[in-house]
């Protein structure tokens, strides 16, 4: 089974984020990148399925040369080869990403595409759904468990929804997005890292893939949230209940 798995770099969630001068994005001075944690779950999920069913895992990312590191990490964990589509972060929205991935799917013809359920920078949670839409494939988002059928024609996917679990049976090819509970991503070992050095990462230009890269969403302005006012201390539970009822109107 051939699995395409997408990874994205995100700004370090622990870094102190400042807006850039014209407030259209984040000032990246001194801020490091990390791989999006949900993408690590997607890679691990893809590797486990491949290890069980055989086949190939192709690790894909969109971005400048520096994102090769994150593709390479996927390869060090056990991915077979990589693909990068060079586009700059500021020229991307969820829809462009989905269109690029759709073009790669047309080229690579995988039976399964795996992604993280969302990236923890923009938290848009859109790419998997848009991609499934463009491909006309079934989707199973927020997967916490995946069981492949014996004939590899379908997968039973458990997804965490408000108030419980939902189990979907999707016919392959399909798009699955990974939740944190799906697995514990393995560590890339140094021997794996050394081997990954010799694995190929193909670079495909969006234009050559025939993708229209016009963004549909443009960020006009960002604003920092207002400073939080100091809290207050209450003397008793009754006092607290009173305030919740009368002032906050929360009860």
């Amino acid at each position: 089974m051939k699995i395409l798995v997408a990874v994205k770099r995100v700004t370090d969630p622990d870094a102190r984020i400042r807006l850039n001068a014209d407030a259209t994005g984040i000032d990246m001075t001194g801020v490091e990148y990390k791989v999006n944690p949900f993408c690590e779950n997607a890679v691990e999920g893809a590797l486990q399925l491949r290890d069980a069913a055989g086949g190939e895992v192709v690790v894909v990312s969109i971005g400048p040369e520096e994102v090769d590191t994150y593709i390479r990490t996927g390869l060090a964990m056990g991915g077979d080869r990589g693909i990068r589509v060079p586009l700059e972060d500021e020229n991307l929205d969820s829809d462009v990403v989905a269109r690029v991935l759709a073009a790669l799917v047309a080229k690579e013809e995988p039976e399964l595409v795996m992604l993280g359920k969302q990236a923890i920078d923009g938290d848009n949670n859109q790419v998997a759904q848009l991609l499934a839409g463009y491909l006309g494939w079934p989707q199973a988002c927020f997967a916490s468990e995946i069981a492949l059928s014996d004939d590899q024609q379908s997968a039973e996917v458990t997804r965490e929804v408000d108030g419980g679990l939902e189990v979907l049976n999707v016919g392959l090819p399909a798009v699955i997005s990974a939740d944190l509970r799906l697995n514990e991503p393995r560590y890339a070992s140094l021997p794996g890292i050394m081997k990954a050095k010799r694995k190929t990462i193909d670079v495909y230009e969006a234009a050559d893939l025939g993708v229209d890269t016009t963004v549909k969403v443009r960020v006009l302005k960002l604003e920092s949230p207002p400073e939080r006012a100091a809290g207050i201390k209450v003397d008793s539970v009754d006092d607290l209940l009173g305030k919740l009822r009368n002032e906050a109107k929360a009860l």
Partner: peptide, 15 residues
């Protein structure tokens, strides 16, 4: 090189 970055990142994630 990339291998150095990855070793550091792996050990950091472990830690």
């Amino acid at each position: 090189d990339e291998t150095h970055h990855m070793v550091r990142a792996t050990c950091r994630r472990f830690a």
